[in-house]
């Protein structure tokens, strides 16, 4: 049961993510991204991490994607243009761009190789896997004890991002 659900959600996530970048219409990309996030949330549930799953749905699939949709609609973004060949930038023409595709396939092969080499028992008793991730109380305890500094530093990060966004977006130059 668990295994078939894993394959279902996994396939949903991978397929949706693939079509996100294969679409020319930004609106379709955004909707597919939501599907991919929902697949991820399903995987989190299977990993006994319901809190992460719920956060994934509420924050990413919900709030952030609504923002994305609004931006796409406000910009009235048209379909993406087909790629143009710019003679001044030979690296961006179709041939060299395939190198990027090949490199990503190599990377995929590496990852698959790595995981196939790890015995499944090692996966099950890998450090860090246990029941402590599952409860909200445990997560809160981790955040405010082990990761206090990271938590506080994140607030600086968000502040920087806000200042940056204001600088880049404000009207009067």
């Amino acid at each position: 049961m668990d295994l078939s659900l894993f394959y279902l959600f996994g396939a949903l996530t991978v397929a949706a993510s693939f079509f996100v970048i294969a679409q020319r219409n930004p609106m379709h990309s955004v909707i597919l991204l939501i599907a991919s996030f929902i697949g991820l949330a399903g995987l989190y549930v299977l990993l006994d991490a319901p809190f992460t799953a719920v956060t994934q749905i509420i924050v990413y699939a919900g709030a952030i994607m609504v923002l994305f949709l609004f931006v796409v609609m406000l910009l009235n973004a048209p379909r993406e243009d087909p790629p143009v060949v710019d003679p001044r930038r030979p690296l961006l023409s179709a041939g060299p761009r395939r190198i990027g595709g090949v490199l990503s396939l190599v990377f995929l092969a590496e990852i698959v190789w790595a995981f196939s080499r790890v015995p499944t028992t090692a996966m099950n008793d890998a450090p860090g896997i246990g029941d402590r991730v599952s409860s909200v109380a445990a997560i809160g305890l981790e955040i405010f004890t082990t990761h206090t500094f990271a938590f506080e530093a994140t607030s600086v990060l968000i502040l920087v991002a806000m200042v940056g966004a204001v600088v880049l977006a404000r009207k009067n130059l």
């Binding site: 990761h147 990271a150 530093a153 600086v156 920087v160 991002a161 200042v163 940056g164 600088v167």
Partner: peptide, 30 residues
């Protein structure tokens, strides 16, 4: 922004936790 970037750099140089190094890297980079 210059000063915050300096904060990120200092944090990156002194962090001994990969998570903090990553946050510092992002503070600096953004």
């Amino acid at each position: 922004l210059t000063l915050f970037s300096v904060v990120g750099m200092m944090m990156m140089a002194s962090a001994t936790d990969l998570l903090v190094i990553f946050i510092a890297l992002e503070i600096m980079s953004i």
